[in-house]
Amino acid sequence: MISPRSGKSARKRHERALALAFTLPSLVLFVMFMIVPIFGALYLSFTKWSGAGAIKYIGISNYTNLLHNRDFWISFRNSVILIVLHLGFQLTSALFFSYLLYRTKPGMRFFRSVFFLPSVISATAIGVMFSLLFNADLGPINFVLHELGLHDWALPWLSNKTTALLVVSFIIIWQFIGYHVVIILAGMKAIPEEIIESAIIDGSNTVVLFFRIVYPLIKDMLQVSLIFMVTGCLKAFDHSYVMTMGGPGVSSSFLAVFMYKQAYSRQKLGLGSAAGLVILLLAFLCTRVINWMFYHKDEESVT
């Protein structure tokens, strides 16, 4: 006969073994291919290495090089521009369209699914698609401009320094408006119906309703949207790489494109790793700043 005590401890042991068996595979892969690479990047960022031959330790030279690297600063500036354009156009459009959708009974689900569609589609496919549409000689956009007699407007969109950055940026913005509409809309739907109804009975019109009632109540969702937007901008790669290769020159290159090019076109793995870590640090920092901003605002509204 098994005493209840030993039965209990056998069960305990079984539980412990199961917990271990259920954690170990994930943990091993996660550590090997996610955590170790971060330290690997840290290590490589202090070295000079082309991928073959000896790895040479050079201290913080890669970081000081970044500070003096013109291409890095242009890519950095472009990423900042991308963030500003996102705040100015993507966030506002997402707010506008989600507020329009909110409380629109007919077609709400239809519009929501249509708006979200581009977010599901590969950035590579979208990049190739728009590089065809914006092609200077063969593209339909210039075709239409010529047809309309607007010959001066038919620019070489993707090989002009200014327009290349703008076109790439607005395509990223366009693709993910629907994504943020869904997030913000979920926040709006969580507002209790009575609050809205009593505001309407009090005579609030739509605009007042938005700024007085809806906006303060969806701040949590806006915070999340903002974090996703800004970190997404810092990671922006596919569209720029596919449409312009970051060019002409580096005029439409973002931080991630800069990092990729240093590492895989110029075989500067050390410098590339340093740039990769800069992206990581900026993502952390921006998330912190956004959280801090919202935290402080909350405090103000309480007092």
Binding site: G40, A263, L280
Partner: peptide, 14 residues
């Protein structure tokens, strides 16, 4: 929290 770009190079080295 980790962007893919930060681990890409060492991942390929590994």
């Amino acid at each position: 929290l980790i962007p893919l770009h930060a681990v890409l190079i060492p991942l390929n080295v590994i």
